[in-house]
């Protein structure tokens, strides 16, 4: 197949090719918004204990051995040190303090091999009580 073959065909399409090209350009422009792999957050729900409210979202696949991007959003009463990790994985627990302004924080956690996966968020209240929030996330993915 020579370059000339397609150049000839391209020329032969005349003006008719331009509406088609325009439509494909529109399609290509829409792909980032309607494409198959959007960088969206998965909302796993909000949990409330007494007057503390926490919402957990994750982004990306839960592949065993890979890290997962977590986002926690809390109400004002949860502005304190918290510990996030996968249940049964004490080594993976990380400690942080929620940002007092936005009450939102992001954590990278390494996904363990064994499932089902449960994210736990522990916090110690001013009264010294420990509160634990749990979210079930399914099983880790092998790939």
């Amino acid at each position: 197949m020579t370059k000339g073959t397609f150049a000839t065909a391209w020329k032969g399409m005349g003006l008719w090719k331009w509406p088609a090209i325009t439509m494909l350009v529109i399609w290509a422009g829409l792909v980032p918004f309607l494409g198959p792999v959007p960088p969206t957050w998965q909302n796993h729900g909000t949990q409330t204990d007494d007057n503390i409210t926490l919402t957990l979202e994750t982004r990306g696949r839960m592949r065993a051995g890979h890290s997962i991007d977590l986002r926690l959003t809390a109400n004002a009463n949860a502005d304190r040190e918290i510990f996030v990790g996968f249940e049964g994985e004490p080594n993976e627990v990380s400690a942080l303090t929620l940002n007092g302004q936005e009450l939102q924080t992001r954590v990278d956690l390494s996904v363990p091999d064994n499932g089902p996966l449960t994210i736990t968020v522990r916090m110690v209240t001013d009264e010294g009580r420990e509160r634990v929030f749990r979210w079930h996330l399914g099983i880790p993915q092998p790939l």
Binding site: L34, P36, V37, Q42, H44, M62, L137, I139, Q141
Partner: peptide, 14 residues
């Protein structure tokens, strides 16, 4: 058993 979640948009939707 729950195996996980994916977004609404997929190769099939695309």
């Amino acid at each position: 058993a729950y195996q996980g979640a994916t977004g609404w948009l997929s190769i099939q939707r695309f």
